[in-house]
Simulated assay, not measured.
Amino acid sequence: MINRFSSSKMLRNLTMLAIVAALAACSGTARVEPTGINDPYEQNNRKVHAFNKKIAGSGKGGGLAKAVPFEFQTMIHNVAENMSMPQVAVNSFLQGDIQGFGLATSRFAINSVLGFAGLVDAASEFKVPEHDTDFGETLYVWGVGEGAYYELPLLGPSTGRDVAGRVVDMFTNPLSNVLDSPEKYVGTAAKLTDRILKNSRRSDMISDVLGNSADSYAQARLIYLQKRRYELSRRTGTMATYDDPYAN
């Protein structure tokens, strides 16, 4: 059902986005990415890290993912991916990525119509490539610095820039402006669940990597920062010298 207050909501969201853009502009256009680690909240982050390891199962049997049928996990992922495509399209547009905007729009249209509202990934069957981005990446393109390192409960490692991006992404998905409750929360719930299940599925691999380390927190922090920095530089064409720790 269409929300009758969608216009005012969209105006508020665009206003907030404009404020963030202005703050980003004030930070300057020259982006200097760090090569070291900025972790002023390490003590608290370590506590969250221990909690996340316990929830994920610490690599013993896959944790939460072991209890959820894989077919159901696939459907959750498909719905989360499809519901996020309008948001991906918005961020692609803000980054000046016209090709990414087209891919996100095409995937959403195909999967919403032919994929039973996103339960099935029909777009991939039509050879439409997957595309993903977020407001954290948009801030990177705009020149906003990385900020401090954080480990978030259930969601795992992040940075100050990406935490801000997550918050903004909660309000910039066009679907949240046209859907009523509770439909407008389906995408957010599916995305959160998909992220938690993904972390749980990867717990065995992560455990193998961290198991040989004397400090699993420091190792996980290093792997995340290397991977995120590499992904951002690769996606935006500003290639850096970071190694991809997950490369085959």
Rank of each mutant, 00 (worst) to 15 (best):
A218E: 07
G187M: 09
G28V: 05
N78C: 01
D215E: 11
T74L: 14
A122Y: 07
G136N: 01
S106R: 06
I196E: 07
S176C: 00
Y150F: 10
I110C: 01
D243H: 03
V90F: 00
H131V: 13
Y217K: 02
Q87D: 10
L14E: 06
N91I: 03
P86W: 04
T105E: 02
P182D: 04
L23N: 14
R235Q: 08
V90L: 09
L154E: 05
A218G: 06
K54Q: 09
K53L: 11
A89M: 07
E137P: 01
P86N: 05
A89C: 02
A18P: 07
A89D: 00
P34Q: 07
I2P: 10
A22Q: 14
E125F: 15
N38L: 00
K9S: 05
A18C: 06
F135A: 03
Y217N: 03
A50T: 07
Q226P: 05
N13A: 15
E151T: 08
L114I: 06
G237V: 06
E42C: 09
R107H: 03
G143I: 10
Y41T: 02
I98V: 15
M239L: 09
L14R: 04
S92D: 11
A220R: 12
A22T: 15
P245T: 04
A30Q: 06
R229F: 10
I2K: 14
G63W: 01
H49E: 05
T74E: 11
Y217R: 06
E130W: 09
R4L: 15
S6G: 10
